[in-house]
Design a protein around this nucleic acid. Structure first.
Lengths: 160, 160
DNA sequence: TTCGCTGCAAATCCTTTGCATGGCG
DNA sequence: CGCCATGCAAAGGATTTGCAGCGAA
């Protein structure tokens, strides 16, 4: 994966709108963006790219695996670049931010549940909803999307 | 919980539309319904209840805990009666059915992850995607929505 | 040049809301 | 009888689509 996000690699014609949108996705410190977020960024940069094109390009990027589309609560789709391996999400209902984590014990447990039930597990999505540390302590969110919170715990017994 | 779904118990005025909608929710073999599914059922039964009322009543039922609202993929809200305790969902990508399960070890693990990170966990949603037992074995789904598959495992070590 | 891509606007889909009427308590 | 609830229609927000012109290969 030397070139994780390359238009040629996925068979899409190279156009200005696609290049610009990809640039925004790659450079954004915030990993979780709505279509409108991308559109706003384009406008800030003076680009004359229509919202319809943003939707079309994001859908194309998703279909070739460059992006993942999430459907959190609230109805709007959230796009995330697909370059950092699997992880789950924590959504702060107070500050509306999305944090990421990955817990291998949790992953193993999911696999085991599927196995026990005779299900062939392909993938999963887990969303935790609650209040983040900063919101609870001071009424403001203290964690930025730039440095998303991560949990990588592995060895804690499940029945602790 | 002798009367798990009773309008009086939750302080809602008893009206025909609410009674009819509750009846549909209670009698439906399929536990996961969209607002339009409910509306279609009402029309089949010859009821003159507007779609707006369906949405309003479902929202009220949700706010008093009779229903849960899910936002699966696809943008439309899915409502489910809240009479069987918390559970997570397994989607069979072959037969498009939804199964339910609840695993306490998984629940504990989620709580622990949140605790470690300083998050106040309010709720969560977990969706496993894969192929169900029947599909894998015979090409048809062997489990009906009427008798949803359940996993209640509790004591399996997380590091198996 | 060719055919895919884009912008714009209109169309869809799902859901919510305003308002006058109707029905529960 | 007083209000809350409902039906209808219209508004709203997110996303998709039709179509003529533009641009990459």
């Amino acid at each position: 994966m030397a070139e994780p996000m390359n238009l040629k690699n996925v068979g899409l014609r190279i156009t200005q709108p696609r290049l610009k949108i990809m640039q925004i996705l790659q450079q954004s410190a915030v990993r979780h963006l709505t279509a409108d977020d991308v559109y706003q960024q384009l406008q800030l940069q003076g680009e004359e790219i229509g919202l319809a094109t943003v939707y079309r390009v994001l859908a194309q990027f998703e279909s070739v695996g460059l992006l993942m589309r999430h459907n959190f609560e609230g109805g709007r789709a959230i796009f995330e670049r697909n370059d950092s391996g699997h992880h789950d999400h924590f959504f702060c209902v107070e500050c509306d931010r999305v944090f990421e984590f990955c817990d291998t014990a949790l992953e193993r447990r999911q696999q085991k549940i599927a196995n026990n039930a005779g299900f062939a597990l392909q993938e999963h999505a887990m969303y935790l909803y609650g209040t983040c540390k900063g919101m609870a302590a001071e009424g403001i969110c203290s964690v930025s999307d730039d440095a998303p919170f991560e949990v990588q715990t592995t060895a804690i017994p499940s029945d602790s």
